[in-house]
Write a protein that binds this DNA or RNA. Structure first.
Lengths: 173, 173
DNA sequence: TATTGTTATACTCTATAACTATA
DNA sequence: TATAGTTATAGAGTATAACAATA
C-alpha cells in the first residue's frame, strides 16, 4: 500500500489526467475556431457571451472580471480590442462614476450570432458526441459541486487585487 | 423560439460551461503552484512527469510532442529551458541519428519529487474534495470515452506538421 | 482609505516558416 | 522525398506595479 500523506489513488489520477487532456484539447480547438471564424480570443468570446446573455446587454468591468479573467489589466486589454473593433462600447456608469458600463453593440451581437453555430458544432462533435443524455446529466451533476467548491475556495487567485472583503488589522494606523 | 439546427440543450450547455470553468481554475491554480514551487511551466511539468513515468527515464522528442504540446517548436523551447537548468539531458538516439533521446536527470527527478506533494495537494483540495470515491469513478468513466474520441478525431490540431499518414496525391510530380 | 479602471512594461508562451541533417 | 529536430521571428496574452479618479 502506498504512502498516505500526499497521494492520489489510481482512480483519482486517471480522472485528473483525463480532465486535463479533455479540457486542453477542447479549449484548443474552440480557440482555433474562434480565431479562424471571428478573430476572437477565448476571453473576448466570454465577454461577448456574458453581455449577450444579460438582459441589458451591459455589465460593469468588475462584473466581467469576476468569472472571466484572472487579472484586471487582462480584461482591460481584451475589452480594448473589442471596443476598437466596435463590438462593445464602454461608457462611465451613471450610478457610480468610477465604474464603466460595457455594452455589446449590434455589430457585436451580429458577430456573436455568426460565430455561435460553428462554436456549438465544435463543442458538440468533440465533447458531446460520445455522451448520452444521461451521461451529460451525470457529468453536470459531478462538475457542478466541484465548480461551486472552487468558487468558494478562498485563495482562488493569488492577487487580482484584494478580493472584496477587507482583511482587518492589515495596516495598523 | 430560436432555430433548431445548431444548438446545445440546457444540460449540455451546463456541462460545457462547468467543464470549462472547472478546468480553467484547476489549470490556473496548478500552474501557479508549479511556478511558485519549482519555477516550472505546465508543459515542463508534463515533460518531467512523462519521463519520470517511463521505465527508461527517456523519450524521443517526437514521443513527447504527441500528447504534450501542440507545436514542435514549442516543445523544443520548453525542453531547452529544462536542459539549461540541468533537469533533462538531450542526446542523439543511437538507433536513429535523426532522433533525440530526452532523459530526466537526477536533478530533474529531485525537483519533480519536491514539487509533487504540493501539486497533489492542489489537485486534491480543489478537484477531489467534493467528490466521493464513486464520483471519481463515474467521472473517469465519463471522461475516458471523451478523451478517446478526441484523440481519434482526425483534424485535432491544425498543423503540427503533416500528421503521420501521408495524404496521397498531394503533389502531382 | 478603499474601490474602479487604465497604463506601462516586461515576460512567457505559441506558432510559422525556413533550415539542417539523417533515413 | 519524408522525417526529426532546431532556429528565427513575430505576435498574443498575462501579470505586476504605478497611477488617476471617484466613493
Amino acid at each position: 500500500m502506498p504512502g498516505s500523506p500526499p497521494s492520489l489513488d489510481r482512480q483519482q489520477l486517471g480522472a485528473y489526467l483525463a480532465l486535463m487532456e479533455v479540457s486542453s484539447i477542447l479549449r484548443h480547438e474552440v480557440e482555433q475556431h474562434l480565431r479562424a471564424e471571428g478573430d476572437l480570443s477565448y476571453v473576448q468570446w466570454q465577454i461577448l457571451a456574458s453581455l449577450e446573455d444579460s438582459a441589458s446587454g451591459s455589465h460593469r468591468m468588475t462584473d466581467l472580471a469576476d468569472g472571466v479573467v484572472y487579472s484586471r489589466s487582462g480584461l482591460t486589454y481584451q475589452a480594448g480590442l473589442l471596443e476598437k473593433r466596435g463590438l462593445i462600447s464602454r461608457s462611465p456608469s451613471p450610478a457610480d462614476e468610477r465604474s464603466i458600463d460595457v455594452t455589446i453593440t449590434d455589430a457585436g451581437r451580429a458577430l456573436f450570432a455568426r460565430v455561435l453555430p460553428g462554436h456549438i458544432e465544435v463543442v458538440s462533435s468533440l465533447l458531446f458526441e460520445p455522451l448520452s443524455r444521461n451521461d451529460v446529466q451525470a457529468l453536470t451533476g459531478l462538475l457542478t459541486p466541484v465548480r461551486d467548491h472552487m468558487r468558494a475556495t478562498p485563495p482562488r487567485s493569488a492577487s487580482p487585487r484584494r478580493r472584496k472583503r477587507t482583511r482587518a488589522g492589515d495596516t495598523a494606523s
